[in-house]
Amino acid sequence: MDNILEKNDAELVALSLKNREIYGFLIQRYQDKLRRYILRIAGGVQNDADDILQDVFIKVYKNLNDYDPKLKFSSWIYRITHNETISFLRKINRKPTTYNFEIDAVKVKTIEEDLTLDQKLDNAKVKENLLKIINNLDKKHQEVVMLRYVEDKDYQEISDILKKPQGTVATLLRQAKFQLKEEITKNKHLFS
C-alpha cells in the first residue's frame, strides 16, 4: 500500500485502468484541493460542492483513457473540475460574479515578488485590502490570478486548465498584475 502512495499521478492512472480500487488513491490525493477549487470558483455552493466533486471524479474515471501523460494530471483534473463546475452553475442558471478567495490561501509572497512592490503586504488589514482589489478585477483576470496566486499554478498549467494559449494567459496575468499594482500604488495608505 505504501508503495502505491509513492506512485506519481500518471502511474496511478495506469494502475486505476487495471484495478478500479486504486482509483480511490487518486481521489484521496485530489479531493481536498478540488473541493476548495470548486468553492472558490462557485462561491455559495457549499451544499452542492460534494455533488459536483463526485461528478468530477466519475467523469475523470470515465475519461481516464483520454488522459495524455504529456500533460500534468493535476492540470487535466483541474480542467475537468473547472468545466463541471461551470456546467453546474449554468444548469442552476447562476453565474459566478466573483471568485471566493480566502486571504490565507493567497500566496502573498508570490504577489509581492511578481509585482515588485516597495511595501510588504504582510499584515492582516493589508491582506484584506488586497483581497478587495482582487475581487474588483473582472472575471477573466480573477480566474488567472486565482490559479496563479491561490492554486500556485505556472503559466503552462493555467493554459492547460483554461484551454487558452500560453500567450493569452501571460497577457491576462500581465494586465491583472498591472491593475493590481496600479490600485496598490493609488491606495498606498491602505497598504502601509
Binding site: Y23, G24, I27, Q28, Q31, D50, Q54, F57
Partner: peptide, 11 residues
C-alpha cells in the same frame, strides 16, 4: 473517505 467510497460504490 465518504466521497472516495461514494465514487467507488457508484462506479
Amino acid at each position: 473517505n465518504d466521497i472516495s467510497k461514494k465514487v467507488l460504490d457508484k462506479i
